[in-house]
């Protein structure tokens, strides 16, 4: 049983949660033995961009000591055996070139999402 996770909602709650909650869930499910793959489409292609920096937030005397590291979390997810695909056209539309993305993500075209859907047992569109 394998799940294709299609993600498109970007930078939602990431500062408070200190991660992307869906990437976190996919990783937690992987640790519990669940097979799956991830597609980033729409604005969330930005989660795979190099050079993100969410450090420096501080409210009064309370700094955020563990700021979100979206790219790092995705690299850990890939290291755990979950491939991550990025819809190349969605990145290009947003001025993001392949060279701007973290190592390891795989570029696909729009029609490739349907092919991935067919090759997985379940498709979860987050």
């Amino acid at each position: 049983m394998s799940i294709l996770h299609i993600l498109e909602t970007a930078f939602r709650g990431t500062i408070e949660e200190q991660d992307d909650t869906v990437i976190w869930t996919v990783h937690a499910m992987r640790k519990a033995g669940q097979e799956g793959s991830v597609v980033l489409q729409g604005n969330i292609v930005g989660h795979a961009v190099r050079g993100q920096d969410a450090t420096g937030l501080q409210f009064g005397d309370h700094p955020q000591t563990n700021p979100v590291d979206l790219a790092g979390d995705m690299q850990k997810l890939m290291a755990a055996g979950v491939p991550i695909y990025v819809v190349e056209g969605d990145a290009a539309d947003r001025g993001i070139a392949g060279a701007d993305l973290i190592a390891g993500v795989q570029l696909i075209d729009r029609a490739g999402v349907a092919g991935l859907a067919d090759s997985h047992d379940l498709v979860w569109h987050w």
Partner: peptide
């Protein structure tokens, strides 16, 4: 999440 993984295996659909 481990509960969800178990349900994926037991369910007819999710």
């Amino acid at each position: 999440p481990p509960n969800l993984v178990a349900w994926v295996g037991e369910s007819d659909n999710v």
